[in-house]
Design a protein around this nucleic acid. Structure first.
Lengths: 336, 336
DNA sequence: TTTCGCTATGGTATGGGTAACATGATACGC
DNA sequence: GCGTATCATGTTACCCATACCATAGCGAAA
């Protein structure tokens, strides 16, 4: 593969002159420029970034570490990241941890060895360790979507609590008094926040304490399916179900359909996270939609500011609003 | 950030000794090893890959260039790539071109500047240029999913033609004689192959020439929606529709539902590519499923062999079989 | 005429890890 | 007692692009 020296030799100039032609950083005569450009063309020269990366400790690379690449919510967040990264001349590396702490650790070490310039992290656990690991290398990091207790770090997330509060309120306003919450893992802050929002709505509606029913599981379709089967054996049977995310909601629907239970006639259903329109033939779920792309954009802007040296500014905690979209799955007002 | 020299100084040894401890490449006494390990721990030292990458022209990085990150088919292929890459000590960079030739070009140049070790490319167009660009830098490349005419290059793809042939045959066996094919772009080989499979099936069933009806569009839900609206104005109305991919199928369903046309009672529907089970509440579409994850794995194995220097072996063209899954959307046998 | 600024080009040092080579020390066999 | 194998550690050079400093010609202002 040709180097800048090969180009220089062919054009009869010094390497630095070739560099100047490529980056337009200083005076080069038209005549010399022409010779250099021909040489570049002839050799098919592509500059090697690794030299400057090593020299100037800057790789112009960001990393996005997400927990589930099959969830369109995360791929949409990733697009938001790319929007801003690309506009600022940065490339992105996408890492998928599958919610595994171990995989996350592997990826983080890999990223540190590569000396990437910044990390956008969706933590696989509510642990301070990964943040400390990154901080020790003085690499800027912005946490996405999830709170981490007892760590002062930049965070960009959606308002899970308010969204869950509104969804629950919507169900209550329709007359529901026995609402089942099918939550994600206890170790993930969004899951905890959504349960809090749900319980706050119940409390503020002055419903008796024992109306709160929460089943903890995880953010997957299988979990939604199993939790629903469990819930259907209860008496009295809940009149509404709150699914903590989109995958859980699909699992719920599968279990209900299998048992011949109709939504919303027999049981009302609401969920967090919208499903992508590219897959849902008829939008059906009443949901709290998170501004996924904007989350990615905001987080990346913040990260780039940190990279550019705003290290004295105190850590920010950006909370974006969710949007409740009422559709068929939550049904009409029911009799008391 | 500490370097190997800082560690060496603290441990009272030469940098190379630290290197030997980390990589276990030569003799180091237990006592020295202990001192070095403590120093690494104390400084929180993480080796900088950029040094060796520059020196030995090896970044231990592969790139996957896909055309649509929102399509789970491609994220599944990507997982297959990661399976093999990670097992061999390689990291992957994921690039999303959105079927744009220009974006593809930008990404490829970025990857070349980074001196990644190999590229898995889903070409955004049937053009030989991107391959030539990569080849000029002597970087191994394996093409995924799509044929490129007049270029000798390794390819791993699914058998679009056979899958389309079988799906069409299935419709014919159910009595359909007026089957509409809603294809992808003419510039993408899978689209062309699926049309060929469809037409071959018609021909072999000895159906009259004029039974072949193809509308060219692209692989999106919007296109499926629009093409369907167009098709519904035809007389006689087709009794069956063949959607060239999963997104198109969803668009078809939306258009049909809007017009109150039932599937499969009024129109039968088959499609290429399965929808992920995490989204589909009840699997409904009769589809030809491609072995996505396996495609990624096979392609990566091949790429790694090329990287390890099997450059004299002639280019391979791996074609994996598709699997036809018959579900409700294609319906029962109809009257002639 | 001298000084200054602008144009145009080049030499050298730098960054971090490690292959290749070099240097000792100890141990063992004959 | 000497050659040889093994253990243990160190020195130097290298990869590539470019910031920094240096050089020199030329025209214009002082």
């Amino acid at each position: 593969m040709p180097t800048i020296r090969d180009v220089a030799k062919l054009a009869g100039v010094a390497p630095i002159t070739v560099s100047r032609v490529i980056n337009d950083t200083s005076y080069v005569s038209q005549e010399t420029r022409g010779r250099v450009e021909s040489a570049i063309e002839e050799l098919g020269y592509v500059p090697n970034m690794l030299g400057p990366s090593l020299r100037f400790q800057q790789t112009l690379t960001l990393a996005v570490v997400i927990t589930d690449i099959t969830n369109p919510f995360w791929t949409t967040v990733t697009r938001g990241v790319e929007d801003i990264a690309q506009a600022n001349g940065y490339s992105t590396i996408l890492c998928n941890t599958d919610e595994s702490d171990e995989k996350q650790d592997q990826y983080l070490h890999m990223l540190l060895r590569r000396r990437i310039d910044g990390i956008l992290l969706v933590p696989a656990c509510s642990d301070a360790k990964p943040i400390e690991l990154i901080r020790k290398q003085a690499i800027p990091v912005v946490v996405l979507d999830r709170r981490i207790p007892d760590v002062d770090v930049d965070i960009v997330r959606a308002d899970s609590e308010a969204g869950a509060y509104q969804l629950t309120q919507h169900l209550i306003s329709l007359g529901h008094r026995n609402i089942m919450m099918l939550a994600g893992p206890k170790s993930v802050s969004t899951s905890v926040d959504r349960v809090d929002g749900y319980q706050n709505a119940l409390r503020e509606a002055n419903l008796p304490e024992n109306t709160s029913h929460v089943v903890w599981g995880n953010y997957s379709q299988e979990a939604g399916y199993q939790m629903t089967q469990e819930v259907l054996t209860l008496t009295p049977r809940p009149t509404a179900i709150f699914a903590a995310n989109n995958f859980v909601a699909v699992g719920v629907m599968q279990a209900l359909q299998e048992q011949g239970i109709r939504v919303p006639q027999d049981i009302a259903l609401v969920a967090f996270d919208d499903l992508p329109s590219t897959f849902t033939i008829t939008p059906f779920f009443t949901v709290a939609r998170q501004p996924a792309r904007e989350m990615g954009q905001r987080a990346t802007q913040l990260l780039l500011e940190r990279i550019k040296g705003a290290s004295d500014v105190p850590c920010q905690h950006v909370i974006l609003p969710t949007q409740v979209i009422i559709r068929a799955s939550s049904g009409e007002r029911i009799a008391a």
